[in-house]
Simulated assay, not measured.
Amino acid sequence: MAPKLYYFDGRRGDAEAIRMLFKDTGIAYEDVGVSEETFKQMDAAGDLLFGQLPMVDFDGLKLVEQPAILEHIAQMADKAGKGTNKYLGENENERSTARSLCSAACDLRRESLAMRKEGSNDAKRKFKADVLPVWFAALDKLAVASNDEDKGLGAGVHFTFGDMAIFEAVNAITVALNLSVIRPYPNLKEWHDKAVHRAAIEVHIQGRDDAPW
């Protein structure tokens, strides 16, 4: 039975990195749009731990919280042994790094969402001046590639579930503010461009509908 991803109908939000990881791993899934009324019904029925989306139903295992969902998908992919990439990383140190990246992506996404919700030019200017340089400078240091095959941030060459979380958060910012915001950070831009051109991710980005974040 294919996993079912439940998220608010017509939105990308915290579900987008999950969609991307499903696509990148080649794991078939069902994307279920949820209306506000259906959300209330699911919550009342006890289907949503902590009363929130996204939620993925893995054949009866109903997981919420993006980092946990991404790690579970990575575990499924590595167990299936599709391709040479290891989404959990090569070892426990790399897996722990991936978890750290997921947490960082959540923090970055939270700050960018606050900017989006306010929606004013002042909010965008403040984000560009005060928030973005701190995050992108730190990620630029992590993005130094050890060789042409290095697809991951930090130690290891694999593109992990943590890399996917960071990629989606950074990509969403470039979509909201313009790709030019990443150009002062050459290592991060090179890493971002590699990820954009991962075959399944490129197809997903080119084919997705315009939608509110």
Rank of each mutant, 00 (worst) to 15 (best):
P3H: 01
P3L: 08
K4C: 01
Y7T: 09
G10E: 11
G10Y: 15
G10C: 14
R11M: 14
R12S: 14
A15D: 02
E16A: 06
I18E: 07
R19I: 06
R19P: 10
A28H: 04
Y29L: 14
Y29M: 07
E30R: 12
D31K: 04
V34C: 10
T38M: 12
Q41P: 00
A44D: 12
D47Q: 15
L48M: 06
G51V: 12
L53D: 09
P54Q: 08
V56F: 00
D57T: 06
F58Y: 01
L61W: 04
L61M: 15
L61K: 11
L63E: 01
I69F: 00
L70T: 04
L70C: 05
I73S: 12
A74Y: 07
A77I: 01
D78N: 12
D78K: 03
A80R: 12
A80I: 01
K82C: 09
K82R: 09
K82W: 07
G83L: 05
T84N: 13
N85K: 01
N85P: 10
G89R: 04
N91Y: 06
N91D: 15
N93F: 15
R95A: 09
S96T: 13
S100M: 13
C102E: 01
S103H: 02
A104W: 05
C106N: 11
L108M: 15
R110A: 09
R110E: 11
K126Y: 02
K126W: 08
K128R: 07
A129C: 01
D130M: 06
D130N: 13
P133M: 02
W135Y: 13
F136A: 12
D140G: 12
K141Q: 13
L142T: 03
A145I: 03
S146K: 15
S146Y: 05
N147M: 07
D148W: 06
E149G: 15
G156H: 01
H158Y: 01
H158F: 09
T160V: 01
F161G: 10
M164G: 10
F167W: 11
E168Q: 12
E168F: 07
T174I: 05
V175N: 03
V175Y: 08
L177P: 06
S180Q: 14
V181I: 08
L188C: 11
V196G: 00
V196R: 10
H197M: 03
I201C: 00
I201D: 03
E202F: 04
V203W: 00
I205M: 14
I205G: 08
Q206Y: 05
G207K: 09
G207L: 09
G207F: 06
R208Y: 03
D209N: 08
A211C: 02
P212D: 07
P212W: 11
W213I: 10
W213Y: 13
